[in-house]
């Protein structure tokens, strides 16, 4: 049986990814730093195990990979999804602590998970790594630490692709645009309207759109797709800058 680990899978995009993987017959380690979210998510899905922990620490990341090995006998798919966005802070107001926290939670966390996952995947003869980036990586005014961290994810996946190709392990980035998660729904109506106008499809994405992209890259048949950056943005990245807030 194929085994996957999804970080930050207690809710939002991560939960949708875990749900789709389970529907495709994959056993899934459901990680979240929020204990209740992790356990609730795991309860809603079959063939899962919840691992509560912060993957921005080595111990937290290690526990996720160990659970895959101990509960399901190995690991085929790592989806490094845990993260959070911070926008609206001018660069002069970004403190050193803010910077480190955003980089740790969005980029270093992915590195930790990868470091523990790769030896397990190599023993298995192959694997799939998917890093969740963000459209912000293209550049985001007021979001310098977040954009840099998510750009780091793209670069990390490209390096892993080159390094791990001989071992049958692929590494790709999925780049969500604006996805209709609770945070986005909670925006005030006016700001939401402005944001929506920047979307050529006239709608936000669904967490399942991101999940579909992840499952496509995580599939055994995707063995020669590696180092790629797959945009799930409804075409927002195609618009001229003048039309993008």
């Amino acid at each position: 049986m194929r085994v996957a680990a999804v970080t930050g899978a207690g809710r939002g995009i991560g939960f949708a990814i875990a749900r789709m993987l389970v529907r495709q017959g994959t056993a899934v380690v459901v990680n979240d730093v929020d204990g209740r979210a992790a356990h609730d998510a795991a309860r809603k899905l079959t063939n899962t195990v919840a691992v509560v922990g912060n993957v921005a620490t080595e111990a937290g990341a290690k526990a996720v990979v160990e659970a895959a090995v101990n509960e399901f006998g190995g690991l085929d798919v790592l989806v490094a999804n845990a993260g959070f966005g911070v926008v609206g802070v001018e660069v002069g107001d970004v403190t050193a602590e803010d910077w480190s926290r955003v980089i740790e939670r969005n980029l270093t966390s992915q590195f930790y998970c990868v470091r523990f996952a790769v030896p397990v995947m190599r023993r298995r003869g192959g694997g799939r790594i998917v890093g969740i980036s963000s459209r912000a990586w293209l550049g985001q005014a007021g979001g310098t630490p977040y954009a840099a961290a998510k750009g780091g994810v793209v670069s990390l996946m490209r390096s892993l692709a080159l390094e791990l190709a001989p071992h049958g392990i692929t590494a790709n980035s999925v780049v969500p645009g604006s996805i209709a998660t609770p945070a986005l729904e909670a925006m005030d109506a006016k700001a939401r309207e402005v944001l929506l106008r920047a979307h050529p499809m006239g709608r936000f994405g669904d967490p399942d759109d991101v999940a579909r992209a992840v499952c496509f890259l995580a599939h055994p048949a995707a063995e020669r797709i590696t180092g790629q950056t797959l945009y799930v943005t409804g075409g927002r990245n195609l618009l001229l800058p003048s039309r993008t807030p």
Partner: peptide, 20 residues
């Protein structure tokens, strides 16, 4: 895929990492 309606303008290189 008829369900895959939010991915557009993507150029996917299938190259085993060759072009990176």
């Amino acid at each position: 895929d008829p369900l895959n309606g939010y991915v557009t303008g993507q150029v996917l290189n299938i190259c085993g990492g060759q072009t990176l």
